[in-house]
Write a protein that binds this DNA or RNA. Structure first.
Lengths: 139, 139
DNA sequence: TCAGGCGTCACCCGAAAGTATGATTTTGCA
DNA sequence: TGCAAAATCATACTTTCGGGTGACGCCTGA
């Protein structure tokens, strides 16, 4: 980001300098002002395109990692443990497998899930996963 | 896309015309060439940025739609009906709801699902959805 | 200090999901 | 036309889920 802006600024300065230099020394008598302006326009359009690409690319790499995540989780009052269970459910694990992974009993997992269903306002685990993903709670 | 290019071209033409017009008539004696070039650079950088944004946005809307979809489905020998069931499962519907939606009995839905599990090499519906999405079979 | 949230666990029960097997009809293709 | 795959349904059985209820210890903030 900073680098992009820096490069853009430098290019701008250098180009302005060069163009003026050549304008004064050689071109002004041979080329019309239209052509001069055209080249400047062309070059800076290119620079704009390049800078735009850089900037949008960066925001596209930086933005995907959640945002609403935390906010929504807090709003829904979903606890740490519940979120862990939710993530494992989303991976397609059974209650038993989740329980083993978290070193708790199946009953505990089921309790967490019940609370999750209530908070997410769903009835089944598949719906919970669906909703959680759409809310960017997980993945 | 075409519209973007058209607008860009028109803006370019109009600006070049205007700038030259003003340059000759009024500015050339009051403003330095540096300032003139600066404004042109600024304006065309903006145009470049704008055009770039438009173009990248379009490619981002056009590219996502599946590719491996069909190929993978054929490879896994997943039938029409099975795919329908799979999609409904991914939406979090129960076997009963799916059956009602497809006007078949719950047993039929379960049969389709069994076949799906076998073809996808999974044991549960949540895993099936997980795998199907990662293979771009659905969504 | 006490209420309330969190995490843990248990038991019960009914519903949903999944397995296994077999049968019939439809359909596409050789 | 005939066969294989697909689609349909059924019956029976097992496993997993999910709901409801209650309980216990821990920690935190009022």
């Amino acid at each position: 980001m900073k680098k992009t802006i820096l490069i853009y600024g430098l290019s701008l300065a250098v180009l302005v300098f060069l163009l003026e230099y050549f304008e004064y020394r050689y071109f002004v008598h041979e080329l019309s002002t239209e052509v001069f302006v055209f080249f400047i326009a062309l070059i800076f359009t290119g620079l704009g395109l390049w800078a735009g690409k850089k900037l949008t690319n960066q925001t596209k790499i930086e933005s995907p990692p959640f945002e609403q995540n935390e906010k929504a989780i807090r709003y829904l009052k979903i606890s740490e443990r519940e979120l862990e269970v939710l993530e494992l459910v989303a991976q397609g694990l059974s209650n038993k497998q989740i329980s083993d992974k978290l070193f708790v009993s199946v009953n505990t997992t089921k309790t967490h899930l019940s609370h999750l269903y209530e908070k997410l306002d769903v009835k089944r685990r598949t719906q919970a996963v669906e909703k959680a993903k759409s809310l960017n709670l997980i993945e």
